[in-house]
């Protein structure tokens, strides 16, 4: 479904070039959930944004749904994939109601039956009709993230890109959102890429996981192997150990 080959991203910062992503390659099969895990500065979110086409990148191949993804995406190409951002407080327009926010993609793509589609999308993500005309500031963090997911899925894209969708949420809300994502993934047979710093979250939701460090993919492992620690790289082991909590013993 998605093929990434030798993806590199370079930022220019006051005359210096910073190589945020260096030669990253992987494939995502249809219906698969692919995880990318790493610490801050590892380039994990940058990879996701490059695939989404919202930042410039270079690669020997970037294919989506069998077609090469152009640098400038057409409206139709945009419809193939949608994005869910990390911060539910920054990803919704502060002066638009939930209804406005969900209507917008439908209007852009000239889709009919707006009302019906919007109320279906609201029900789909577990919000009630009374949330429909609220402004983002009248919603909780979890409800906002549900709106963001509804907005991403209202165009029925085959691919969903998730950038730390639960890291700004409380554990109990995170559980609800992760359950919702699993449910939606099944009902719409979505292919998705999930970026997170939390090994527990990726292992829960993903089939395969790429571990990134300093702009490179260190290794790609199956979720089951990650759980039992069947990994080949020292860095991955370090991450696993760290995610199990604090160890008092001196290493």
């Amino acid at each position: 479904m998605i093929t990434v080959k030798d993806l590199s991203v370079t930022f220019q910062n006051s005359g210096r070039s910073i190589h945020a992503v260096r030669g990253v390659s992987f494939d995502v099969a249809p219906g698969e959930t692919f995880g990318i895990v790493g610490e801050s500065g590892s380039g994990k979110s940058t990879v996701l944004k490059a695939i989404a086409g919202i930042i410039a990148s270079s690669s020997s191949a970037l294919e989506v749904d069998g077609r090469s993804a152009a640098k400038r995406r057409s409206r139709e190409e945009r419809r193939l994939m949608q994005f869910v951002f990390q911060d539910p407080y920054a990803s919704l327009h502060p002066r638009q109601t939930v209804d406005d926010i969900l209507r917008e993609p439908l209007i852009i793509h000239g889709i009919a039956n707006l009302d019906e589609k919007v109320s279906a999308a609201i029900a789909d993500v577990g919000l009630s009709p009374q949330h429909r005309f609220r402004y983002p500031h009248q919603l909780s963090g979890g409800q906002r993230q549900r709106v963001a997911i509804a907005r991403a899925l209202i165009l029925r894209p085959p691919i969903l890109l998730l950038d730390e969708p639960t890291s700004a949420l409380d554990v109990s809300v995170q559980a609800e959102i992760l359950n919702l994502l699993s449910k939606l993934r099944r009902s719409y047979s979505l292919t998705s890429i999930l970026v997170s710093h939390d090994l527990g979250v990726v292992a829960h939701l993903c089939n395969r996981i790429a571990i990134m460090q300093l702009g490179r993919v260190v290794e790609v492992v199956r979720a089951g192997d990650l759980r039992v620690g069947a990994v080949s790289q020292a860095y991955t082991r370090e991450l696993i150990a760290a995610s199990r909590g604090f160890t008092r013993a001196v290493t």
Binding site: Q174, V201, A203, H204, I240
Partner: peptide, 18 residues
């Protein structure tokens, strides 16, 4: 709370909600 947090050690089809 403990059951809601996804963990590396326990595999759950669905996370418990509070």
């Amino acid at each position: 709370l403990i059951a809601a947090a996804p963990s590396l050690d326990v595999q759950r089809a669905e996370l418990a909600t509070v």
